[in-house]
């Protein structure tokens, strides 16, 4: 565990909690892509099946349970409790265009052709693109609430910090996982455009709105 890994995890946790609190406090999930949240719930579920088969550390187990629990809670708030506020008309990204190719790729490119390993690989690939419905929704409506942009910032920052963590681990531990690294690079690149808008607009006190 190095500082980049730890801050990455905490950044991920911050993102998840910001989103939950935003929905809970405002009693509304307006502007949030339920599809992205379902994809993240799928990501955590398929990745953390090893909760049942392997014990790594108390930290590892607790974080996994928190991530899974929060992601299902978020999906519940969007599709059940505050369903009336869900903006389904703007959440029109076709998720099958992500899930099907990602599923195929995880069968083709993996570390080991076993069910748990393929599901883990699926989760890594899916996570890389799971934010696309949310970004698509923002590009469609042309704006995002500031709190939503904070959520996206921490979510993007998390994988960027993991990239530094992987460089660190390669140099100091000789550890690297090519699948995670390539997917993590793709994932981080998808946020670059957003990071630019976040720094040039949101951090200067302006609302994130895109030119028509």
């Amino acid at each position: 565990m190095n500082i980049f890994r730890l801050t990455g995890d905490l950044s991920h946790l911050a993102a998840i909690i910001i989103l939950l609190l935003k929905i809970w406090k405002s009693r509304s999930c307006a502007g949030i892509s339920g599809k992205s949240q379902i994809l993240f719930a799928m990501v955590f579920t398929t990745r953390y099946l090893d909760l049942l088969t392997a014990y790594i550390s108390l930290y590892n187990t607790s974080m996994k349970i928190i991530y899974i629990g929060c992601s299902y809670a978020t999906v519940y708030l969007i599709y059940a409790k505050f369903k009336a506020t869900y903006d389904g008309n703007h959440d029109t990204f076709r998720v099958e265009f992500l899930v099907v190719p990602v599923g195929g790729l995880s069968f083709l490119v993996n570390h080991d052709f076993s069910p748990l390993e393929i599901l883990w690989t699926f989760s890594i690939y899916l996570e890389a693109v799971a934010i696309l419905p949310q970004l698509f929704m923002i590009s469609k409506t042309g704006e995002a609430e500031t709190i939503t942009t904070h959520y996206l910032f921490f979510l993007g920052l998390y994988r960027a910090l993991y990239l530094i963590n992987w460089v660190w681990r390669f140099y100091f531990e000789g550890f690297f996982d090519m699948i995670a690294i390539v997917a993590g690079v793709v994932q981080t690149i998808l946020y670059c455009d957003f990071f630019y808008l976040y720094v040039t607009k949101v951090l200067k006190g302006k609302k994130l709105s895109l030119p028509a």
Binding site: D50, A54, I56, M63, Y67, E117, N165, F175, A180
Partner: peptide, 10 residues
């Protein structure tokens, strides 16, 4: 099983 990557990351 030794060369399997460990899944200690989240």
């Amino acid at each position: 099983e030794e060369d399997k990557p460990t899944k200690d990351e989240l």
